[in-house]
Design a protein around this nucleic acid. Structure first.
Lengths: 165, 165
DNA sequence: CCTAACTACGACTTATTATATCGTATTTTG
DNA sequence: CAAAATACGATATAATAAGTCGTAGTTAGG
């Protein structure tokens, strides 16, 4: 539970990296893969997936690559996860519509009816709230170079506590 | 992400079921397995695992079975998950000690250093907080019989919103 | 106009983990 | 002593994640 899969991880790393470039500068898949020593093919696919989401835009050709194409403040972690990893839900019977309330009549794989669905459904909603409050902007606000990291210049003050509703 | 594995699920169902019995009454693995039509062997192991945790106690022999042996209010979801599913962390480099702060020197599988660990670490802490605030008592407070469920008698008012700190 | 350096995409293989099954031993009631 | 439980390890199967391979399309620059 609560573990990101690799492509999501690569995606966040890539977004952070791209974000660190000067505005308008292109970043190629190879550049990122080499920087972190990630499998090129997978990273390339991940970038294509980010593009599908509209997070980045691509330019073909020799000096091609990717740039950010969306304000990362406008995308939250729940959306990102659902896109990258599919349905988000505590149990399989709670896909992306798990937040639609405690539906006791919901079909359940278990005989005699599932005795935990209602409460899990409530919990699921809370998790959705939680994840929705975290923006990609916060998640990719990261030191971009080794040197920056070594200097301890970490401007991390993300607010995940679910403040202003 | 955020999906319970089957044994955790079975465990919660079993706890809810056992909880519904009159105080002191024993519940056998077979009874629960038949009630929900779960694979007996797995459920049996799950129950043994719940026993390891001290949540239930077992009685041997022909009329043996399980009873609750701990106040479910005293066990939170994070503890339960860590016991049932192992380390809880967004990324592998954040096991159960992921909450120990942003340790930049932490060994990382990625070349040039991982650029997302610090922020994920912060997020991880928030998730831990979140999960710690949910007790097993809340999670198993469930209608116990089909009839009760059909009557719509669902006393669900769990407070997961992270109130009084 | 051709080559190098890119993006794009689908098929396939391998690795890892989750789930389920099997076999056997031990304990207690009647 | 037989039946009905718990206990526990070994093994098999299924599902999913991760990684690889092959090929096609696009563009800048010599």
């Amino acid at each position: 539970m609560v573990k990101l899969n690799r492509t999501t991880e690569y995606g966040l790393m890539a977004l952070s990296y791209i974000r660190g470039k000067e505005a308008g500068a292109l970043t190629s898949a190879r550049e990122i893969a080499q920087y972190f020593d990630l499998p090129f093919e997978i990273l390339a696919k991940t970038l294509q997936r980010l593009k599908e989401q509209g997070l980045i835009a691509s330019t073909y050709g020799t000096r091609g690559g990717y740039v950010l194409s969306k304000d990362l403040k406008t995308v939250n972690l729940l959306e990102f996860l659902m896109f990258m990893e599919g349905p988000v839900g505590l149990v399989t019977c709670m896909g992306n519509d798990g937040h639609k309330g405690d539906d006791l009549s919901h079909s359940c794989a278990y005989k005699s009816g599932c005795n935990i669905r209602p409460v899990l459904s409530t919990l699921n909603e809370k998790i959705y709230d939680f994840l929705s409050r975290i923006s990609l902007d916060e998640l990719t606000r990261i030191p971009l170079t080794k040197t920056a990291a070594r200097q301890g210049a970490l401007p991390i003050s993300i607010n995940l506590s679910g403040g202003e509703p």
